[in-house]
Computed example of a mutant assay.
Amino acid sequence: MEREERRPVGAAMVVGGGVSGIQAALDLADAGFKVYLVERQPAIGGRMAQLDKTFPTNDCSMCTLAPRLVECGRHPNITILTCAEVREISGVAGDFTVRVRQYARLVDPDKCRGCGECESVCPVEVKDEFNEGLSKRKAIYRPYPQAVPNIYIIDIQKCLECVECEEACTAGAVNPFMGDREFRLRVGAIILAPGYELFDASARPEFGYGVFPNVV
């Protein structure tokens, strides 16, 4: 029996929107491929966006990352899918079908101007995960000032449903009735760049983390 030949799909998916995923997407896009950049968080940038300086050169982290963020957001061959997760992959190399679930921001990305009027009237303040809880953010927020895409998101777990943000938004972008959506994409290749999570040092008590003040 002869093997059925499939024509490779001229698109690629990069899973993970940290600096490595961004660079991979840019390299593929510059080579002429259509790229879908899938990121679980509301904005791309990953851990590098949280850093002040980078080792070993002590260079400014955002000075390195920001040009790539802007280029990625403007590149005609790159589609950024934030608040999204890969749910299923089927097919073979050169012809994959990927099922993606994208969670609702409750803010219309086509209308949001990133002006911040909604955030200024929000009465809720919670710990800001981006700054490791050292500062506060609102229930409707933008992850960080240089975020790409420059679109706000509502934390439904913290929202009081007071509609203050909806009334303040002159663009009519706040939409509490937005729902999650699922869709399928055909790609020829998939690059996994999922990043990392910070290690909980308290899981290794022999090092004295949380016991001795000079163990950090």
Rank of each mutant, 00 (worst) to 15 (best):
G32K: 09
D200L: 03
T57M: 11
Q50E: 15
G188V: 10
N131Q: 13
P143S: 04
I156S: 07
E182D: 03
Y196Q: 04
F130T: 09
G210I: 14
G133Y: 06
F55I: 14
D110F: 06
P67L: 02
V121M: 02
G172P: 05
G17I: 12
R137P: 03
N150I: 01
G32F: 12
A11G: 15
A24L: 03
Y152D: 01
I191M: 09
A93W: 10
F207W: 13
A201K: 09
P56G: 08
K158Q: 14
P123G: 04
E5K: 14
C122Q: 04
C122E: 07
A201D: 00
E161D: 06
E129T: 10
I151L: 05
F183N: 12
R87F: 05
V215E: 08
G210R: 13
G188S: 10
C118R: 03
A29W: 08
M178S: 13
G73C: 09
E125Y: 12
T54K: 02
C162Y: 02
P123S: 00
A25V: 10
K111T: 01
L26E: 06
G91Q: 12
F96C: 05
P143Y: 05
D108H: 01
G210W: 13
E125A: 04
V15A: 15
R184F: 11
I151M: 00
F212Q: 08
Y152P: 01
L37G: 11
M48H: 03
C122G: 05
C72K: 05
R47D: 05
S120N: 07
V14I: 13
A189T: 10
I151A: 08
T170S: 03
Y103M: 07
E197V: 07
C122V: 02
M48S: 03
L81I: 13
V9C: 04
E197A: 01
Y144N: 03
G133Q: 05
A29H: 08
V211G: 02
N150K: 10
R68H: 07
A43C: 07
Q50G: 10
